[in-house]
Amino acid sequence: MRNSEVNSVVLYNAEDEKSIIDNIFITGVAMNYGMRALDVIESMTYAMNAIRSAVSGGAGTSVMVTLNTDASPTVAGSYTYVSDMLSSLNGNNVASEMNGWAHLTSEYVTKYNPSYIVILDSGTYSSGDYGRMLANLSPEWKNTDAYKNGNIYLLCEDIGELSQRASPRSVQFFEILARILNPDSFPGGIVVPKTIGNDYVSYLTYTKDLGFGD
């Protein structure tokens, strides 16, 4: 692209918090907004450290984070920003033996038997579709502790799209994930529902005002 006189910047693969922050700084400098990028990074880091402190000492729980509700779903394995977030939030990624965003065969859903399942949906469902979604799950999904104990969470609409983008707003997804896995660690009476959509800001405190242009 540079040989063709097209300005271009190579960014890191968003495997963890550090690579997201590095990409923000690189992009900011490339666009002559280096100081603004540093301000954004400082706000993100402060909020994420505060959330980590709030949930510190909590008991670990097994989690599967998926991009769809297929019988054989696409899940977050190791070397993804989602897996990195889980490690900071008392979550044990059941797909950690896989690398990147991996295709999980249906029998492994039952084998891994996650206590929590978080679905990052970018357009299949809306906020009113939770019941329909549950009814359409495969037998393998319905045989997990997450299903039996009512711990399947659907992030759709705005938060579903936001959660799939490694960007400054990932910090808001980080707080939502923290509240799902550690409901007793946050005062203020906010109860995270099983479905979160365009109203996701209503369930934030630490990162509520960090829309970064939203």
Rank of each mutant, 00 (worst) to 15 (best):
M1E: 11
N32E: 14
T207M: 05
A135K: 15
I119R: 04
D145F: 01
K111Q: 14
E15N: 09
V29L: 10
D199Y: 03
S163L: 11
G60P: 02
V75I: 13
M35N: 14
D16V: 06
I190T: 14
I26M: 13
E175Q: 03
L89A: 11
T124V: 12
A71C: 06
A59M: 07
A146F: 09
S83F: 00
H103D: 13
N3C: 02
L177G: 02
M85P: 04
S56T: 13
N182G: 06
A71E: 10
F174Y: 15
E175R: 08
P114N: 05
V65R: 08
A59D: 03
V63Q: 06
Y130R: 12
S167M: 02
R2V: 08
F174M: 03
T205D: 13
F174N: 00
F173M: 15
G213R: 03
S83M: 08
P168H: 00
A54V: 06
K18A: 03
Y153H: 12
L210M: 05
Y33A: 13
D209C: 00
L38D: 14
L154Q: 12
R36P: 00
S78Q: 09
A47S: 14
E17Y: 11
V75D: 08
R36M: 01
F212W: 06
L154E: 09
V29Y: 07
W101I: 08
N13A: 03
S96Q: 11
G91K: 05
S170H: 05
V82H: 14
N3M: 10
K208Q: 12
I176Q: 06
I190K: 15
N92L: 08
A135T: 14
F212L: 02
I152Q: 02
L155R: 13
P114M: 10
T66W: 02
F173Y: 15
A71N: 04
T61N: 09
V63D: 02
I159C: 13
Y46G: 07
G128D: 10
E5D: 12
A95E: 03
V75H: 01
T207N: 01
N149A: 13
G128Q: 08
S138A: 07
S8K: 09
R165E: 08
Y81W: 15
Y125T: 09
D145P: 01
D209Q: 02
G34P: 02
L11E: 08
G100F: 00
A76V: 08
Y147N: 09
L210P: 01
D121E: 10
S126A: 11
S202I: 02
E157Q: 15
G57H: 05
P193M: 04
V6G: 05
M133P: 00
R169L: 00
G77S: 03
I21A: 05
V75W: 01
D214I: 03
V201P: 00
L137C: 12
L120M: 14
T205I: 06
E42G: 10
G160P: 12
I190W: 01
L177W: 00
L89T: 13
